[in-house]
Nucleic acid binder design. Structure first.
Length: 456
RNA sequence: GUGGAUGUAGCUCAGUUGGUUAGAGCACUGGUUUGUGGUACCAGGGGUCGUGGGUUCGAGCCCCAUCUUCCACCCCA
């Protein structure tokens, strides 16, 4: 029985127009990745479960798609495991593979596995789909595309500078103005936790702080109290709730706040380095912000943290993010490899460009000219011209059937094909082609040479 | 994983306190126009009202379950 045609929730089909638009974004990102010296790699769509499990925290484990083993896998499960009905214990017995959850962890695995073939520092980019068993929402899918660039094997802060410039270059090329590159540093967060004497609650502290723009000052304080952070400690960091001003003013404020924290001072030094570099080489369209409430990827980020927020007039969360991780490959047994990387969220950038109507108009235009089919001998005459045009790299096609003129014209119009050639008996005798501009309606007879010249 | 909305033609949506044969616009097909599309006019095709149960003489409308999509939380691109 034929089932109703459908796709799993959180996944999408892409129409020709959508693919064209996606390719436009991908091409822009890819060109810039290459311009900045990154080389492409690809990793499998699925990995061994133990490569992924435990790398993203408990929440992450829950969101990893697990792949059922092949064969009669239940036979291999012991009666004990079976009868306890404990999914956590049961799952690994029947599933040894999982869909990849992001590009960073598989990249770390790749680096460790191929360390002897890689020339460090290794600059790689990767544009692939990743999968999350999340509940879909606006701009949130279960299959989506990430575009990552990472450098591994260098702890130079110039890499951070380059990534800020890379973000700026891509969004400038896409004509997306008003993008904010939000910057923070794990060392600043550690410093803050340190000076209030709550270093052991760093994660709770930062996760709560991260919600400042969402639940407000009171909400954050309440969450901190709930997590066991003392009232006194919260008072000590009161200034960061009114953290206003430009980059320099914020740094000054942090300097006094973190004067007693060694790690905090280190974070400030890094921020200053980036600020100096960007001051000397200003960004084109993006804006660099210092945002101490930014706390993403704390499971592995150790230095800089980036997050890209869409222009304020669109309701979309972050459209990219990244950061510095000092020991990502350590979990796979390769120590002392500092890395830093960023990611572009293709699907969200798409939604933003769509909402702001920023896709170029010609993007869905592919075929430049279509030939009307008047019958077999006329089709042969047309096909010779089609072949000549294609030889010159011009996308041309012949309508396959000798259908009614109206139908063929409508087809050209719907396909957004800018030119139509009408060549019937009269034109054949005169050895010309009647070229019609679909936009202006203009029409004139040209010979084959002139026809080709129109398009090159 | 938690909470709240939603689903009627290919698409966007009407559909009265439950009452005959479920509508519109757009799209599609054909015609006005047998060598000219995008504008106009005429005609036509297309829906077991998400799915499965239930209440009722009678359900698109009420009840239950389930799925989809959307929104918020958690988390995140």
């Amino acid at each position: 029985m034929a089932s109703k045609a459908s796709i799993p929730k959180g996944t999408r089909d892409f129409s020709p127009a959508e693919v064209s638009k996606r390719n436009y974004i991908i091409k822009t990102i890819q060109e810039n990745f290459q311009k900045f010296g990154f080389q492409p790699i690809e990793t499998p769509t699925f990995e061994n479960s133990d490569t992924l499990m435990g790398k993203y925290g408990d929440e992450g484990d829950r969101l990893i798609f697990k792949i059922l083993n092949s064969g009669d896998f239940l036979k291999k499960v012991g009666e004990n495991t079976f009868s306890t009905k404990d999914s956590l214990k049961f799952a690994p017995k029947i599933s040894e593979k999982a869909l990849k959850y992001d590009l960073t962890v598989p990249f770390a695995r790749y680096v460790v596995q191929h360390q002897n073939e890689i020339d460090f520092p290794f600059k790689r980019y990767q544009i692939q789909n990743v999968y999350r068993a999340d509940r879909p929402q606006k701009g949130r899918f279960r299959e989506f595309t990430q575009c990552d660039a990472d450098v591994i094997g260098s702890d130079s802060l110039w890499q951070e500078v380059e990534f800020i410039q890379l973000y700026d270059a891509v969004f400038s090329n896409l004509k997306l103005e008003g993008v904010h590159i939000k910057l923070n540093n794990r060392k600043i967060l550690s410093g803050l936790a340190e000076v209030i004497g709550e270093s052991d609650k760093l994660i709770d502290f930062t996760v709560a702080l991260d919600k400042l723009d969402k639940i407000g000052e009171e909400g954050v304080k309440k969450e901190m109290l709930d997590k066991g952070i003392s009232e006194n400690a919260i008072e000590n960091i009161q200034p960061i709730f009114n953290f206003k001003g430009d980059f320099s003013e914020k740094i000054t404020l942090l300097e006094s706040l973190l004067s007693n924290s060694e790690v905090g001072q280190k974070g400030i030094k890094e921020l200053k380095f980036l600020q100096n570099a960007i001051d000397a080489m200003p960004l084109q369209t993006a804006k660099l912000d210092l945002d101490v409430t930014l706390a993403r990827g704390l499971n592995y980020y150790t230095g800089a943290i980036f997050e890209i927020s869409a222009p304020e007039n669109v309701n979309m969360g972050s459209i990219g993010g990244g950061g510095r991780y000092d020991d990502l490959t350590g979990i796979f047994g390769l120590k002392n490899m500092s890395g830093v990387g960023i990611s572009f969220g293709l699907d969200r950038i798409y939604l933003v460009l769509e909402e702001l109507d920023l896709f170029p108009e010609t993007i869905t235009e592919n075929t430049k000219v279509i030939f009307i089919n008047f019958g077999e001998t006329e089709a042969m005459y047309a096909m010779k011209a089609v072949r000549a045009l294609r030889a010159k790299n011009i996308a041309a096609e012949l309508y396959p059937d000798a259908a009614k003129m109206k139908k063929q014209m409508t087809y050209a119009d719907k396909r957004n094909i800018p030119y139509v050639v009408l060549a019937g008996g009269n034109e054949m005798n005169a050895e010309v082609y009647n070229l019609k501009n679909m936009k202006t309606g203009e029409q004139n007879a040209v010979n084959l040479e002139e026809l080709i010249a129109k398009f090159v």
